[in-house]
Design a protein around this nucleic acid. Sequence first.
DNA 1: CTGAAAGCGCTAACAG
DNA 2: CTGTTAGCGCTTTCAG
Lengths: 345, 345
Amino acid sequence: MYKPTTIKDIAKALGLSTSTVSRALRDSFEISEETKRLVMDYAEKIHYKPNPIALSLKERRSYSIGVIVCEVANSFFSQAINGIESVAYKKGYHVIISQSHDAYEREVINVQHLANRSVDGLLVSMSAETTDFTHLKRLHDEGLPMVFFDRVIADFKTHKVTVNNKKGAYEATELLIKEGHTKIAHLANAPHLSITPDRLEGYKEALQAHGLPFNPNYVQYCHHGGMIYEEVEAAVQRILQMPDKPDAIFVASDRLSTGCLTALKKFNPGNLHDIAIAGFSNSDVINLLQPSISYVRQPAYEMGQIATEMLIQLIESNKPIKEFSNVVLDTQLFPHNAPPVLKAS
Amino acid sequence: MYKPTTIKDIAKALGLSTSTVSRALRDSFEISEETKRLVMDYAEKIHYKPNPIALSLKERRSYSIGVIVCEVANSFFSQAINGIESVAYKKGYHVIISQSHDAYEREVINVQHLANRSVDGLLVSMSAETTDFTHLKRLHDEGLPMVFFDRVIADFKTHKVTVNNKKGAYEATELLIKEGHTKIAHLANAPHLSITPDRLEGYKEALQAHGLPFNPNYVQYCHHGGMIYEEVEAAVQRILQMPDKPDAIFVASDRLSTGCLTALKKFNPGNLHDIAIAGFSNSDVINLLQPSISYVRQPAYEMGQIATEMLIQLIESNKPIKEFSNVVLDTQLFPHNAPPVLKAS
DNA sequence: CTGAAAGCGCTAACAG
DNA sequence: CTGTTAGCGCTTTCAG
């Protein structure tokens, strides 16, 4: 059994009291240099490390923050996590990641698991399935700091970090229009996700601005956000089989974009450039894909950083915060013939 | 400030002692049904949740395991993490992920951070830069359970989970040979990583088995394992500019594979099928890449699962374990014209 | 059946 | 300058 050395061991070995040892280790001014040296040297020698759990219990905080995303095996989220981690570690916090796999039940369990006082705050991106927010609301009401990013909840009084989804969608759709496409379908994410209506709106506005009709049948939803490939394939198939077959698709997310390409490759192997694609994606191999696609990239790393800074500020503030900000960053559009981005952050 | 309810609050509210409440909550046989009901109902009503930190302090364990990988934004590792998470959560453990970014210093800091009694065990995949293992050795000697996966340390007495790297490399190289290539270069990972000599060996053996000469110049190392794109690009450039220019490349890892393709696309835009590629990769969009490549896939999810099961077994064993196993799984080869894998696990 | 008290490792008044 | 004591939330003897 792992039995780490404690302050008591040092005290006993040196014939001092635990409080003296504690103070010496924290370099307190009320301890003689001589004793400090003695204690420090001995602690060093036996590789003493304070027990963070005891500290947490005393200080009533764990210096850890929980992150809940749908999955880490997704470029957007893994980049966001890199951003989260970079500021968390810099400020002395651990990061505990958990995945909802876009399932409501998993989300509830994980949130419960993380909460219970084992994290000081939560960074949340909603699962695609979730429509009931009481599990989060309750914890938030009890005082657990939370910051939402990417997939947010509209009426939740806390900080949020998102991108301008409407604008990103508008630009992607407009690009397709400018390339000469007129029958543009939209492969959409789960309907109740915050990002879904925003992106739909941008898509619609771009059509309207360029005098193209909006055809509701052209919008196909994927309720599992691409987590189930078959669902994406079915949606793509519906699009391909429409009487008035689209000549382009605007795709609403990373996983949907790759799923869509896979499906197109399956249904249309000889004729990949039959349909143009523009979609949200943070993949770092997007430039290597075939058929080549235009894509909207979100500043995932920065989003993670900002959300974490906000959360830590919330955690470390001693007066209750009533004013919440909603940071909205811009996306970046990469037409499919643009030079490749060589490095993902 | 977040102030969760404690057992004391319940005791006070109900006019009981804390020990009675504690026992009632754990459904102890020595508490009357009536009292139990009273306590349970009230606890439910105020959403009482035991403080896991206090529990950890008492039980001297945290029910959390630390994972250290180079980065999560890498298909192999994010899939492995999914496997880790799936068994960890099932057995009631939290997973704390940290990334070394293939830098020695980060690895040391993170391992220290995780250890110190805040995790019950460690799941480790070495950083590409690390050559000194004392930070891990010491913790292990002090009794912290550890399991290595993928990138292991040869002389470290603990459980390990790897794939048959030599065989995977052999098969990939052989495939290139069977396709008619005779001048096969090898884009290799950092030299001191365990997987590097193994994969090099498989490459060499395949050449030899088919009567091809081994040309040491054909082996180009990337000391940062692809984390720095420029390094990969330079290596690819050296390969392309060789007097006896190779007609194929066997690439040793995920990040190198995509980096290699990006570089080829840059140097050779018109002539992508000039050089055939076969490489290790767990990307789920590999079938969409252009130029298309053959790839060796590792059972990342299973590796994560097995490693975690072993670790938890180590943690929960009360007698010290002296016999360690080295699980070696098989890789799977996908020729570049094979039907696509539709779902990543 | 229930309560009082000790202790997990650490810090922080409070005394000397 | 150093020691004693109490307490963070919880479980667990040990006493009733």
